[in-house]
């Protein structure tokens, strides 16, 4: 088909545009020179070796892992509550309540950052810590968890749970023995997506970290020093690979969940 061919060429060109900046990271991470420009200076792995000796970086990685894991668990738990309520029950103000929970999706992150900063520091007089970052990240990750888990809960066949209750299980027992195992792929997917978002999030962390920076906040500080750029590129390469692995695993579980509940695959997380 003639029209299809033109579109296909455009689509491939568009994908190249999408991947171009990401592709630069590994190219310069292995380049033996501090200036980020072509032609390349030769192959080296010294930037990766240098990563091993930067203490501040290791601290930032530990902080980020703590924040991302805590955020993932909290967001997924909130997501399970909201998604289950939304798919199984009718209650007053349902649209408004779920709307409020989903609002952070469309709010500029800087607004979330300053609003939390004002409440925590100016009004409550608390000091900033990794926990304040967790509070902010949980707020923005919960809507993603709700979206993923709603798809899982909506795809469930209600009669399975009813059958368990008819066979003598309590409502609680039926939920834990029948419903929860069926939505496990959705839960894993929600955990991984929340983890990935939190690990990458910069602006909220920038406003809400105290003396312990998360990885993006640390990176932000490094970008001002030209001699640190190749190391940043090496770190970026590792982060890209990590994100890819996490997303592929999340996608695998999401698809398995779709198959398990017998729904039609609509593709994608959003």
């Amino acid at each position: 088909m003639k029209q299809g061919t033109g579109l296909r060429i455009y689509a491939v060109a568009y994908l190249i545009f999408l991947y171009l900046p990401v592709a630069l990271l590994p190219i310069f991470a292995f380049n033996d020179g501090t200036v980020i420009a072509f032609p390349l200076q030769g192959f080296t792995t010294k930037w990766f070796v240098e990563l091993l000796s930067i203490e501040a970086l290791h601290g930032a990685v530990r902080n980020s892992l703590f924040v991302a894991i805590t955020t993932a668990i909290l967001s997924t738990i909130f997501g399970i509550f909201a998604a289950r309520a939304s798919s199984r029950y009718r209650f007053p103000l349902k649209g408004g309540i779920l709307g409020l929970i989903m609002v952070p999706l469309v709010l500029p992150e800087i607004i979330v950052g300053v609003a939390l900063l004002v409440m925590v520091v100016s009004l409550m007089g608390l000091s900033l810590s990794l926990w304040t970052v967790v509070l902010g990240h949980t707020l923005i990750c919960t809507p993603f968890a709700v979206a993923i888990l709603s798809a899982s809960f909506n795809g469930l066949d209600r009669s399975l749970e009813e059958a368990a209750i008819d066979l003598g299980e309590t409502a609680m027992g039926a939920f834990f023995k029948v419903t929860l195992p069926l939505v496990t792929p959705g839960i894993v997917s929600a955990l991984l997506i929340s983890f990935t978002i939190s690990l990458d999030e910069f602006i909220i962390a920038f406003f809400l970290t105290g003396s312990e920076p998360t990885l993006p906040v640390y990176l932000w500080g490094q970008l001002r020093f030209p001699q640190r750029i190749p190391v940043v590129m090496a770190l970026g390469t590792i982060l890209v690979i990590l994100s890819l692995v996490l997303l592929t695993v999340a996608e695998f579980f999401r698809r398995r969940g779709v198959r398990r509940t017998g729904a039609k695959d609509t593709g994608g997380f959003l």
Binding site: G79, F81, A82, R88, T138
Partner: peptide, 26 residues
């Protein structure tokens, strides 16, 4: 059913009120 639904949605709702509505109000 309404009561169960509201009870179930309350943890994320309370979180959104305390960490979104209240900060925006502040």
């Amino acid at each position: 059913e309404a009561a169960s639904g509201l009870l179930l949605v309350s943890p994320p709702l309370v979180y959104a009120i305390l960490l979104l509505a209240v900060p925006l109000g502040s």
